[in-house]
Design a protein around this nucleic acid. Sequence first.
DNA 1: CGTTAAACGAGACGGTACGTCAAGTCTTTTC
DNA 2: GAAAAGACTTGACGTACCGTCTCGTTTAACG
Lengths: 207, 207, 207, 207
Amino acid sequence: MTPTPETSTSGAREPDASRRSDRARRAILSATRELISDVGYARLSIEGIASAAGVGKQTIYRWWRSKAAVVFDAILEANSQDGGSVALPDTGDLESDLRAVLRGTVAALTEPATDRLQRAITAEIQTDLVVADELVHRLLRPQLDATAARITAAVQAGQAGESVNPQLAAELLFGPVFHRWLLRTGPLDDEFADGVLAMVLAGLWPR
Amino acid sequence: MTPTPETSTSGAREPDASRRSDRARRAILSATRELISDVGYARLSIEGIASAAGVGKQTIYRWWRSKAAVVFDAILEANSQDGGSVALPDTGDLESDLRAVLRGTVAALTEPATDRLQRAITAEIQTDLVVADELVHRLLRPQLDATAARITAAVQAGQAGESVNPQLAAELLFGPVFHRWLLRTGPLDDEFADGVLAMVLAGLWPR
Amino acid sequence: MTPTPETSTSGAREPDASRRSDRARRAILSATRELISDVGYARLSIEGIASAAGVGKQTIYRWWRSKAAVVFDAILEANSQDGGSVALPDTGDLESDLRAVLRGTVAALTEPATDRLQRAITAEIQTDLVVADELVHRLLRPQLDATAARITAAVQAGQAGESVNPQLAAELLFGPVFHRWLLRTGPLDDEFADGVLAMVLAGLWPR
Amino acid sequence: MTPTPETSTSGAREPDASRRSDRARRAILSATRELISDVGYARLSIEGIASAAGVGKQTIYRWWRSKAAVVFDAILEANSQDGGSVALPDTGDLESDLRAVLRGTVAALTEPATDRLQRAITAEIQTDLVVADELVHRLLRPQLDATAARITAAVQAGQAGESVNPQLAAELLFGPVFHRWLLRTGPLDDEFADGVLAMVLAGLWPR
DNA sequence: CGTTAAACGAGACGGTACGTCAAGTCTTTTC
DNA sequence: GAAAAGACTTGACGTACCGTCTCGTTTAACG
């Protein structure tokens, strides 16, 4: 999100990142998180962030392209505080490993603060393709890839059919959870996660 | 969406639906569809709709609670023009029936106009729970239910395991497609749809 | 204000006065008086009058050209309830007769309800020349003429110089009172009225 | 009209006058004058002023409380361009000095542009007491005081009776002129002004 | 005295303007 | 030279009324 000189292709002058005030950066991101929890994303405004962070509006516009970009960085920072690693454990038991990730995802999405942030960013990337791309590459793909990697390991261990497409399987796991969460078509709980997992695992041994 | 007097429980005065101008209603919905295609949802404004439809703003506010509600009705009307039925065909061949729906969904989401409308409404229901509810009950649930019904029929015909949860299976079909479409994690095409279908069908016969 | 068929020169259909609902007319005028006292003229609306009077908007528009016209009729009706006569008494003592009128005017303008109505109509006739004309001929001129007539009588009785212009004298009496009232340049009380009167009377005997 | 920080007693944030754009201020006031002449006060709108002045509405609302306040400042500025001084000349001849002011007033009120502006502000101060006060203290009182001062000088020069109330006399001069102008009860011309003056002068020597 | 046309209440309609909020840009002052 | 402060233009918000236009429903003159 933070523009780095080497990737800049526009003619516009880039701010000098070395002079950037870390105090301001942190104040902005944490004010953003706080405000999103308080008033929700729809009523979140750049002006509100600036005044809550004790920062000039220009300072925000100088370093981020859009409200979505700020929110995205706010999320990223929150995630990386939790560790930030995406690698799945490999206990040797595929089912329990996958159950852990899936239940973890359900837990995260169920937690109000995360719920709000994720919904906010999900809504926003419908409009802002730059942030959308960032999100996919920095958060979604790594997660899917990690899951696919675990499944690949299982295939190699002979715990799944060789014709299985691990990437596809990963999407079959997360897709339904995401669908139910975002569209609220039903209760999102461990039972549902386990149901999805069971059915996907059944599909890993093709007839 | 359209308020019906008999269901009104609030103290607020409801407009008299019997006096409603159909000319205005149609102009608003079709202007909405047009504008969303032209400028996208983010830059869609009530004011814009009103002026494009040759209608007073109040006429929109009189009949819809929010921009999202207008867009939702615009979608509904567009859908119902296409037939509006959600029942799946039952040719006896579960796989080809499901393939038809899934490929149809992919085709619809791939078509630019539908894509925009659906993204718009998806983003908006993150904020507007009333419309969210409406959407679930009027569009999503029926579609999932129809698919589940087809699967139930297959179970009864002995084409799938008896322990299968048809609702869950339906979500396993649509979830990944929706996930890939909304988050753009990969190409959305028939090949993907077929891959999802194959894996889900494999899961319909539990080990 | 009320259109009479014989003066109608326009091609537009005139409403049939003989069918006019007196109930509605009275409700409108009294609602108007009430509302003007409550919310003032600026926030008085035709819609407000209609709903307070339990009357359709069209019924107002059918019989009056403008908000000002309604207010004017409301004032007229209020005035005529008080007697409506404008003739001054002639006790033979010019000074005390004039003092009575002038103090009466001060008293009326000081009374809150009258104050509001008069200010309202005064403000409105700056814009609405038709009502302005009506006001002058139905209220102001009669009052000035009556006063001038009393002064003329005094001249004939040898109580004032023959070269005196009675009309002008009348305006010298009311002008300053009106000026002070409307512009609030100072306290409006009997002392002021008496001061004006004294100076004007002094002028009635030219040097 | 222009808020000065040191007089601010309200809790509301005052804009920082030192940052005020003079360009915008002038554009607003001159657009206001132009529009009032063109379309009259009744059809003058803040929105119209803003667009004619090439200014955001907010910039008007930031510096003025109401349409009347803008109009008032527009008048003030126009007046001060003409010199702005209110002191009367003292040629030693009271009658000719007063005739000059009174005829000047008549001339101003007869001039269409001034007529409109004055009627506008007169109508508006019936509603807006803050502007009313401002008008009285900044325009009306100074004018009356200046006239009264000239009369006081005449008294001291032995040209008028000692018991004369100069303030009252000033109101006797302007009151009738204002009355006739505002209510249009008769022609407003030099003849009328001279008549008023003659009668008032006659009253300056009490019987 | 029943018919019937008009006035009536209600209120939806296309509009204009309101006063507010926030967006993103620009300028000035401070650190 | 970045940052704070905040005024600027722009544009949309949701609301209030305008004056016009149907709707059914009284109601009162006349045939």
